[in-house]
Design a protein around this nucleic acid. Structure first.
Lengths: 206, 206
DNA sequence: TTGGGTATCATACAAACGTATGAATGAACT
DNA sequence: AGTTCATTCATACGTTTGTATGATACCCAA
């Protein structure tokens, strides 16, 4: 039966791994925050590394799912790209730990865990398929769909990544919901301008 | 004077901090890679943390300088934005360790070091000034220059960040110079589309 | 009430960590 | 030749790390 300990460990682990990294979050800190015994991680997961994998899985699965839903929402392809980007922003905003985990994973040179790879492929695949659709519909300009997907996803990825610097540098205030909305709207507008087909024919400028 | 030890420590530190993070790069690993004695870091820098600061400084200063030059190059504001983005990409490509250091810094919840903050403000400031100029010249569309600068810088930041995942996921091959060029060109095209003023008035290029 | 799992507990352990210490080295200068 | 001073070296110290161990507590079936 669910002794809440397992879940408490996952929760504390998610937060501490995100904030201080894998090495920075000690077993003692995690079990302490979870109000569990020092041996609890070994008992419930086998090792610290296994707990980390479980945290990754638990965190990435809903993220993957949410973007999948957004990609399949109603509307034209370009509208769905907007939904996708907005969902991307919103999920990262609502789950601040995801940012830390994601970034932490990307910064090392160690092999990237399965769960991260799977999530990346799923999300990236969904977005580039969407863009291909939009091109077929004449709504999105020509260009390699994968490249365009990368450029599109760069907005939520980078803007969330630099968030602490923005706040600490005082450049942009993130705290207020209005400022955040302006940022997201700006990013989406930027993406739409970057993707949209324009002019009479299907060709972009140039 | 120059016992090469100090420089060897900086070099090994830069590489190992970038690859494994601050905690992940032990004093023993760094001194070992630098073929120096275990006590060398204490002797030359005082502590591991001080070495890290020195590495950050040594790495970020040329980066800041390069982007400053690019921002002040010849051409119209929008052309200089392109130079800026291209220099951003190129510098990160030529100095892979910078990526690891940057990302690691952005992912912690610890206070961000002075050097990182200064670099961010300098680069971000240069870019948003450039965009403001472009707006005054009617070359760049309306919108908050800081927001547009963020959206622009997102391309080199994010695309370099996810580079290891791209490679490991096999989504896009980065290794070949041609593929890399295509990626950079795509990103710059995306930025230009996202920024350009258009319509009947004096708007942009072409 | 008695067993038998499951979970939690206080400790113990070896390894790795960053730093401190004092001796050895070697080149430069008097 | 002798002295000085910066550097390198081997080693030791006190912490902190992740994991292992065995005892204790708890709950439910018998």
């Amino acid at each position: 039966m669910g002794s809440g300990t397992r879940e408490a460990l996952l929760s504390a682990g998610r937060q501490l791994f995100a904030a201080h990294g894998y090495k920075g979050a000690s077993v003692r800190a995690i079990t302490g925050a979870a109000r569990a015994n020092l041996g609890a991680i070994t008992y419930h997961f086998g090792s610290k590394a296994a707990l980390y994998d479980a945290v990754l899985e638990q965190t990435l699965t809903p993220f993957r799912e949410r973007l999948r839903v957004a990609a399949n929402s109603a509307g034209s392809p370009l509208e769905r790209v907007q939904s996708f980007v907005r969902a991307f922003f919103e999920h990262l905003y609502e789950h601040p730990e995801l940012r830390g985990l994601m970034v932490r994973e990307l910064s090392t040179e160690e092999p990237i865990p399965e769960a991260v790879l799977v999530t990346f492929q799923a999300n990236f695949g969904a977005l580039s398929r969407l863009i291909r659709e939009g091109q077929a519909a004449g709504e999105i300009r020509e260009g390699d769909p994968m490249m365009l997907a990368l450029a599109t996803a760069a907005q939520p990825v980078a803007l969330n990544l630099v968030r602490p610097v923005l706040e600490q540098a005082g450049a942009v205030r993130f705290e207020s919901p209005e400022a955040r909305d302006r940022l997201v709207d700006n990013a989406i507008r930027f993406v739409v301008e970057g993707l949209a087909a324009r002019g009479g024919d299907e060709g972009g400028l140039r």
